[in-house]
Amino acid sequence: MTTQLKIAVIGTGMMAERMMTSFAEHPRLQINGICDVNEERVQSLAEKFQTTAYTSHQALLDSEELDIVYVAVPPKWHHEVATAVLQKGLHILCEKPLANSVEEAAELLELAQEKGVVNAMNFPLNYEEGTRQFEKLMQEDYVGKLRRVELRMEFPKWPRPRQQNSWISTREQGGFVFEVAGHLVQQILRTFGPITEVTSDLELPEDPTLSETGIVATMQLASGAKVYFNGIAGTAGMHSQDIELTAYGTEGTVKLSNYANLTQGKIGEEMTPVPLEDKVRTDELIDAFVAAVDGHSAELYDFQVGYDVQVVLEKLRKV
């Protein structure tokens, strides 16, 4: 008989609740405790998912029988909470970014490797059809020799209407560079290889506690091609966001818009849509994590990936 894996959740924001739903529906997982400093919120979710509520992550770790912990606290607390989890020798799934600095990320990477546990980041774009097909076209040399990559982000309002909390707009641990660009930086590293140089020009508000309102940056790929990143928040428009990742080559162009719309075209031709499977992949990460805990090969993006992304992010936001 296949054993149940006991998982705890620390941090109960929007993403955590979504993940808890997937954990609760997974045949191999049992939620053994959730934790948040917001007592009303954690009690409500504990009732919803029929588990035990905690307001201290250490109390949860000391009290419950666990195999896995999902860390979804704000970035400022990743290092403290993830360290406590790893010290217990538990497998760990962490929200991005890995930590709140390169130094913290390096310490978590070293500790995870020392403990020998399964460790992974929640970089969900790796499991999406649009990003997979974008990468496939690059592997097939559809664009020919890569000339440049462009990353464009526009947010009429930051934080986005669906994402309101106490930290997302702060310079210390929020902003669209830290919160959103990390996903795309990880995809760029996965698809095009190492980033060797970063130059960044941030537009910052007068209030020193608030996050950036704009960025113009250049990233050098090991291949010699450059990545140009142009992002801005506070614009006209009623859309939530507009995000584009475009690869320009000697033979063609491929563009991924808002993660789900992929277009391609050869030089001298129109850009045309690339058909994508209508396939939900949200549970692939969880299936892969469970497989890894069982000792099988699995598609996971570990703390080394998280650290590599963190290095680039800190250069972009220059803190």
Rank of each mutant, 00 (worst) to 15 (best):
T246G: 06
K226W: 03
L245K: 14
I215L: 14
T235R: 14
L202S: 08
D207H: 10
S223M: 12
Q186I: 02
E197H: 10
D207P: 06
T218E: 15
Q186C: 08
G193V: 01
G231H: 01
A181H: 13
T191E: 00
R190V: 03
A217R: 13
V180Q: 15
A217H: 02
I215W: 03
V198L: 11
G224W: 06
E206H: 02
T199R: 15
E244K: 15
F229Y: 14
T191K: 06
H239I: 11
L184W: 14
I232Y: 05
G224Q: 10
S211W: 00
A233Y: 01
K226A: 14
D207W: 08
S200T: 05
K226T: 09
Q220S: 13
S240P: 00
S223Y: 02
A225C: 10
M219R: 12
N230W: 02
I195R: 10
I232P: 00
M238P: 00
M238L: 13
I243R: 15
E244A: 14
D242V: 04
G237L: 09
M219Y: 04
T213A: 11
H183M: 05
E206P: 01
E212Y: 03
L210A: 10
G193W: 06
Q220W: 01
G231K: 06
Q220C: 03
A233Q: 01
D242N: 14
N230F: 02
F176H: 02
I188V: 12
T199S: 13
L184C: 08
L189E: 04
V198W: 04
T213P: 00
E212D: 06
H239D: 11
A217G: 07
E197Y: 00
V177N: 05
V198H: 08
E212K: 09
Q241L: 12
A236G: 13
L184A: 11
E203A: 12
T196K: 14
V216T: 15
Q220Y: 01
E179K: 15
G193K: 08
V185G: 09
I243N: 14
